[in-house]
Every structure is written in C-alpha cells, then in structure tokens.
C-alpha cells in the first residue's frame, strides 16, 4: 500500500459518501445520473464477485472496503430509483447505457490477461468503470449546470483514479508491478474528467457554480 493508493481509496470513499449525503440531506437526486450509479454498482459487483463465490470471514480491510463499495452503491441506486424516484431527472439522464456496457463487455472478451470467467468479469468491470461517468457528465451538459455538492462529488470521484495512476507509476518504479489493462483504462477514465477538472478548479474553488454554456 502506498500513499497514492491510500488517498485514492479515501477519495473514492469520500465521493460515495458525498453523493449519499447530498441525496439523503436534500431528499433529492436532482442533477444526479441514475445510470452512472447503476454502472458503478455493476462495476463493483463484477469486480468483487469473489466476495460472493467463496465468502471468507472479513479478515482484512480490503474485504470490508469491497463490501462498503457494493452496499453503498446499491443503496445509492435504491435512493435514486425508489425512495426519491420523484426527483430523478430521467429526461436529462438520457445517455444510452447500452452503448457503454456492450462495447466494454465485447472488449473484455477480446483484450484480457486470461480467458476465464472471473478474469473477464474483472476486465469488463475495469473497462466499464472507465466510461461509467459519461452519463453523469452528459446530464450536466444537458442541464447546463451542476450543484456545488455534485461538483465536489465529481472531483472526488475523478481524483480517485488520477491518484491510482500515481500509484501505478510508484509501483512500476519500486515494485516493477504493472497492470496494463487497469493503467490504460485508468488513464482514459481520468482524461474524461479533464474538462470538468478545469471547470472545477477555475470556478468551484472560487465559490462560483459550474454553469455550462447550454
């Protein structure tokens, strides 16, 4: 474990917590893409499928973190699609998730390290996570604005994988550890946030709200 991965995971946890708090406190999921949250839940379930297959006692923080990620993302989807369904902005959350899931699944079958079920599910999860934020960014471009709290959520979510890139550089240098699939997908994922990062740093940090030229 290195400092980059530690802060990456903390940033990821923070993102999940910020979103849950936003929805729970404001009792509304306006401005939040339900599709992105569904895709993240699918990512966690397919990536941590080993938890379900051979459930071993919660003997380390990693297992606890995996369970937190899965339960928090499923609970977030429950809040969006059931509890606060009336506030779900379905009209603007209109990016076709199939256009992300099918290519990720296809690519996972073509480019993977081992052609077996668990490995392909893991690879699918990595590819899907890289593009899972697109419906959320699409929604913001459609509504033309993002609530400040949602911007903080996006910043934490984007920072997590950016920190993981630093973690991979560190591990390559000190542990000669390399996972090309995760690295390439992580770089693509982080690039998708660049536009938002620019807006966040130039606007939200100065207390302004993000308003896109609609």
């Amino acid at each position: 474990m290195n400092i980059f991965r530690l802060f990456g995971d903390l940033s990821h946890l923070a993102a999940i917590a910020i979103l849950l708090l936003k929805i729970w406190k404001t009792r509304s999921c306006a401005g939040v893409s339900g599709k992105t949250q569904l895709l993240f839940a699918v990512c966690f379930i397919t990536r941590y499928i080993d938890l379900f297959l051979h459930f071993v006692s919660l003997y380390n923080t990693e297992k606890v973190m995996k369970l937190i990620y899965i339960s928090a993302s499923v609970f977030t989807c429950y809040l969006i699609f059931f509890k606060f369904k009336a506030t779900y902005d379905g009209n603007h959350d209109s990016m076709r998730a199939e256009f992300l899931i099918v290519p990720a699944a296809g690519l996972a079958c073509l480019i993977n390290t081992k052609f077996d079920a668990i490995e392909i599910l893991w690879t699918f999860s990595i590819y899907l996570e890289a593009v899972a934020i697109l419906p959320q960014l699409f929604l913001i471009s459609k509504t033309g604005e993002a609530e400040t709290i949602t911007s903080h959520y996006l910043f934490a979510q984007g920072s997590y994988r950016a920190l993981y890139i630093l973690n991979w550089i560190y591990r390559y240098h000190y542990e000669s550890h390399v996972d090309t699939i995760a690295i390439v997908a992580g770089v693509v994922q982080t690039i998708l946030y660049c536009d938002f990062f620019y807006l966040y740093i130039t606007k939200v940090v100065k207390g302004q709200k993000i308003v896109l030229p609609a």
Partner: peptide, 10 residues
C-alpha cells in the same frame, strides 16, 4: 521484466 500484477487493488 515487470510481472503482471496480482489483483491486489480495489
């Protein structure tokens, strides 16, 4: 040569 990573990351 760098070895392929074990799945030890979240």
């Amino acid at each position: 040569a760098p070895k392929v990573a074990p799945k030890d990351e979240l």
